[in-house]
Design a protein around this nucleic acid. Structure first.
Length: 422
RNA sequence: GGAAGGUUGGCCGAGUGGUUGAAGGCAACGGUCUCGAAAACCGUAAAGGAUAUGAGGAAUAUCCUUCAGGAGUUCGAAUCUCCUACCUUCCGCCA
């Protein structure tokens, strides 16, 4: 959500910047008119209320002195009715304005490359070399099938498509990664560990920007106004909703299962671990002072990269262009890991600076000094990492000619000493 | 699922229709005192919004709103009524 005053004063400039996002801005057009109407109604209703408040005091005085207050009361009856009418009108206008503000995406940071689609994303840096194989490589779903560590057939029976059972050492590998990542961020990167609810209410989804625009992407509970979280970002960011924070920065690392309807991606990545309705993810979330957020974005991205480096998986860092930023980010880096069977890099982490976009929606503020005015914090988050995709990357990059898979060294202790899945 | 009680400012906590934006306390900030600190004493202190002056900034002034959220009664609601959410306790049910 953008600041209403800022929007009023910089309307044309904002419009110009949002053009690069390729978003539909038709609703945005009504802003000026509604904003003016709102302020006119406020003036009218407030002057009437001031009048009423003065009269009310007068009436109280008359009553105390046991004088006749009836004429004053009669007059205020009319004023009261008028106030009620204006308040109702004002509420409608404010509701419309709120919907508009909620549906305007964030303004891209000046360092974000301008582009029309994902092809305009910029390679920021590359780490490691894609491995060379002197045998016929297999996609991870075939490797997993041969090793008997992933079971899609039964998952389809039990639930449906895009769900999976991890079995045996597969389940162990997933859990090893989860533990390794959590430990690493908590022990080496200074994050506080968090285990959040997987279901949140509507206000939380609005707070981080999933709603009201993208309701069809979410899993909603039938009888409740509750949603399955698409990422731990939602509960962890909303943890501090409507709070005035005192000590910044705050750094949290949270594991959660994530749930996505994947509406609109029918037919894409139908096989394997890349695109599931439910997947596991370790998420990094930070609340920082505005002046620190861009430095923090680099730091946080580095924290996610460190995991890939420890796992010895080749990857690259992409700076997302204006068209591929998503709704809420002012700047975003995607970490893409090498997937040999697809001969390409695939997203495994997204690290974003939202500036005050989420903080404004969710009412997350801080004070610089004990008596200073509250200011909005900047929020950031990044996957550190998506675990299912990490499993896919390990299976593919570490596959051997005999179909076995070598476990990265750092994971062996977490695997109970298992060095190779065969 | 049934019953009772609760939700007030950064925190605790008074307050059952009319100078209550809200007593009191703690924490905070400024000052007096002190070599300095503590203690003591004095003082300042909520958030959001509109308007005016001002550079549509900082600031100041006036006004409005806000006592979980919403609706209602009333000239007037933290205070009365209804609904919702959450918390606590008891009963039931389940693990």
């Amino acid at each position: 959500m953008l600041d209403m005053k800022f929007l009023r004063n910089n309307y044309e400039e904002v419009k110009e910047k949002l053009k690069y996002r390729g978003e539909d801005l038709s609703e945005f057009e009504m802003f000026g008119e509604l904003d003016e109407k709102r302020r006119k109604l406020i003036s009218e209703t407030e002057s009437l209320k001031a009048k009423r408040n003065a009269a009310t005091e007068e009436i109280a005085k008359l009553k105390r002195e046991k004088k006749d207050a009836e004429p004053a009361i009669q007059e205020m009856r009319e004023v009261g009715k008028k106030i009620a009418e204006l308040d109702k009108e004002l509420k409608e206008v404010e509701e419309k304005l709120k919907q508009i503000l909620y549906s305007i995406p964030n303004i891209p940071h000046e360092s974000v490359p301008i582009g029309e689609d994902e092809d305009d994303n910029v390679v920021h840096r590359t780490w490691g070399e894609p491995p060379e194989f002197d045998f016929e490589i297999q996609p991870h779903w075939d490797i997993a099938k041969n090793l008997n560590i992933l079971d899609w057939e039964r998952a389809a029976k039990v639930t449906g498509s895009r769900f999976v059972f991890y079995t045996g050492l597969g389940a162990r590998l997933e859990r090893a990664l989860l533990n390794f990542m959590m430990d690493y961020h908590a022990d080496h990167h200074g994050y506080t560990e968090m285990l959040p609810p997987y279901i949140v209410n509507r206000m939380s989804m609005i707070g981080t920007g999933q709603l009201p625009k993208f309701e069809e992407d979410a899993f909603k509970l039938e009888e409740w106004d509750y949603f399955m979280i698409p990422t731990a970002e939602v509960p962890v960011t909303n943890y501090h909703r409507d709070e005035i924070m005192l000590d910044l920065p705050k750094k949290y690392v949270a594991y959660s299962a994530c749930f996505r309807s994947e509406a609109g991606s029918a037919g894409r990545d139908t096989r394997g671990l890349i695109r599931q309705h439910q997947f596991n993810k370790v998420e990094l979330v930070q609340f920082v002072k505005p002046e620190d957020s861009y430095e923090t974005l680099e730091e946080l991205t580095g924290h996610a990269e460190k995991i890939l480096q420890e796992l010895e998986l080749p990857y690259r860092v992409m700076s997302m262009c204006t068209a591929d930023l998503g709704f809420t980010a002012a700047k975003k880096y995607d970490l893409e890991v090498w997937i040999p069977s697809q001969n390409t890099y695939r997203e495994i982490s997204s690290c974003s600076n939202f500036e005050d976009f989420q903080a404004r929606r969710a009412g997350i503020r801080f004070r610089r000094e004990p008596n200073a005015k509250p200011e909005y914090v900047h929020t950031l988050n990044g996957s550190g990492l998506a675990i299912g995709r990490t499993v896919a990357a390990i299976l593919e990059n570490n596959q051997q000619e005999d179909g076995s898979v070598v476990i990265p060294k750092v994971l062996v202790p977490y695997m109970g000493g298992v060095e190779v899945i065969r």
